[in-house]
Structure formats: structure tokens, C-alpha cells
């Protein structure tokens, strides 16, 4: 981290990430908290870019800022009106404990690890062109089992969602007009 631009970028992005993460906790309105959470995700993506981890940065934007946040928005929308208040949660104490635990774990790992830090000329020498190719090679080579397990997990999640929302056939208890509906429905069922 010798270049001044990188240092400025790091501090600005860190400030954005930390402040918006704090605002997630402080905001009373659940939707405001979500907006700040997206900002925190974007700041984190920026931090990944300063570490020249382009693939992780783009994946961060794609998965967290793009998809996970929309999922959360949907979850907030579908809960009853009362739960839009972020103030009185039952899980404040366990949340604080778990958060502190995770933070201390990350801090411990970050301090304890010997980072193979390369900058400037050494970075140029190491021919560190692209992380995407390496990530792909590792995912389909060394870590293929974990990759497959994750994809099977996602598939199970998808199927579970379909099973949950599938309409049950209430053949025994249905009223006449419902029976007519079901009959119409059967023709188009996939």
C-alpha cells in the first residue's frame, strides 16, 4: 500500500462501510437499515477492488448488493406492518454476543495470518494477471467436492421453495366452486 490513491481509497471505502454498517444498527426504520446495508455491501466491494480481487468484488455486487438485498426487501415486504420497526428486537443480546464473537475471530485470523503481501514491482513480477481463471481452476479442480456440495445444497433449496409454495390438492374438503377451479387448473398443470 504505497500509492497514495490506494490509501485514500482504502480510508474512504472503510469509512463508508463502517459508518453504513453502524447505521444499519441505529436506523429505526427497517427499510432504511436495508438501504444502508446495501451501501455497506458496495463499500466492501470497493475494498475488494483495492486488493485487486476483481472477481470477488464483482461477485459481491452481484450476489449481495443485487440479489440478497432484494431478497431481504421481499422478506420485509411480506412481514406484517409492525415488524418494519427495527427498534425492539428480541435478539439484541444474542446478536451482540455473536457479532462480537465473529469480529474477534476475524481480527484474530487477520492478525495471526502471515500475509504474502506484494506491492509495486514485486506485484508486477509475480504475473498476477487475473483472479478469475485461478478461481475457476481451483473450484473445478481442488475444491470440486465443496463446489458440488454447495450446488446440491442450492438445488435442494430451490426444490424446497417449490414444494412449499405448491398448492395442496384439497380434494376431500373443497366446496363446489373450488372443485371447478381445480378442474380448470389440472389441464394446465405442468
Amino acid at each position: 500500500m504505497d500509492s497514495t490513491g490506494i490509501v485514500i481509497g482504502f480510508w474512504v471505502l472503510s469509512a463508508i462501510t463502517v459508518v453504513s454498517s453502524l447505521l444499519v444498527l441505529v436506523a429505526r426504520n427497517l427499510m432504511h437499515a436495508l438501504a444502508f446495508l446495501v451501501l455497506a455491501f458496495l463499500g466492501m466491494a470497493g475494498l475488494f477492488i483495492t486488493l485487486s480481487a476483481d472477481f470477488v468484488a464483482v461477485a459481491q455486487v452481484l450476489i449481495y448488493a443485487g440479489s440478497i438485498s432484494v431478497l431481504m426487501v421481499f422478506a420485509v415486504m411480506l412481514t406484517p406492518l409492525a415488524s418494519r420497526d427495527n427498534g425492539n428486537s428480541l435478539y439484541v443480546l444474542p446478536g451482540v454476543v455473536a457479532g462480537l464473537g465473529i469480529a474477534s475471530l476475524v481480527a484474530f485470523v487477520a492478525v495471526d495470518t502471515e500475509w504474502a503481501e506484494r506491492t509495486g514491482a514485486a506485484l508486477a513480477e509475480s504475473d498476477f494477471a487475473s483472479t478469475v481463471g485461478e478461481v475457476g481452476r481451483l473450484l473445478l479442480g481442488r475444491y470440486v467436492l465443496a463446489f458440488e456440495v454447495a450446488s446440491v445444497l442450492l438445488l435442494i433449496g430451490l426444490l424446497g421453495a417449490i414444494v412449499l409454495v405448491q398448492e395442496r390438492r384439497r380434494a376431500a374438503t373443497q366446496s363446489p366452486d373450488e372443485a371447478a377451479d381445480t378442474g380448470a387448473r389440472d389441464g394446465g398443470a405442468l
Binding site: V38, V58, A59, V61, L62, G66, S67, V70, V73
Partner: peptide, 11 residues
């Protein structure tokens, strides 16, 4: 990048 950027518009 293109796919990721376009997903911000949803929000």
C-alpha cells in the same frame, strides 16, 4: 460486471 451492475437498478 455487466450482470452485476444491472442488478443495482432493481433496488
Amino acid at each position: 460486471y455487466v450482470v452485476a451492475i444491472s442488478s443495482i437498478g432493481v433496488l
